[in-house]
């Protein structure tokens, strides 16, 4: 604190969180794929939305099936982000959700217009 008065602009982390929620809501508006046991997979186009979701510290990022299945064991990892270069297909994600019955929300980065 410098003692020069209160900051008037919102803290950066609050802005990032707000942006992440907005990005998630935008992605959720575009429809989803229903996965086994109540999980859902939302495609999110590569761009500010995917970058923002990925940066959110409440979101777990996984690139391989090994990481995915390990992450799903953690009750805290409710939201999982799958980057565009991740080594998994939608069918892979579905298979992992089928054998680990739990509710998770997936955001999968896709190319623009896909």
């Amino acid at each position: 604190m410098t003692g020069e008065g209160r900051k008037t602009s919102p803290p950066a982390d609050l802005l990032e969180k707000t942006a992440s929620v907005a990005a998630q809501q935008n992605a959720m508006e575009r429809g989803c794929k229903f996965l086994p046991h109540g999980s859902r997979l939302f495609p999110v186009e590569q761009g500010w939305e995917s970058t923002t979701i990925r940066r959110d510290d409440k979101v777990s990022v996984v690139s391989t099936l090994l990481e995915l299945e390990e992450t799903m064991q953690s009750a805290d990892a409710k939201v999982i982000f799958i980057p565009i270069g991740a080594m998994m297909t939608d069918a892979d994600i579905e298979k992992i959700c089928q054998r680990n019955a739990t509710v998770r929300t997936f955001f999968k980065e896709v190319k623009k217009g896909e």
Partner: peptide, 10 residues
């Protein structure tokens, strides 16, 4: 809250 995301607007 269990799903970790807000309720979809729809």
């Amino acid at each position: 809250e269990l799903e970790g995301v807000p309720v979809p607007e729809l």
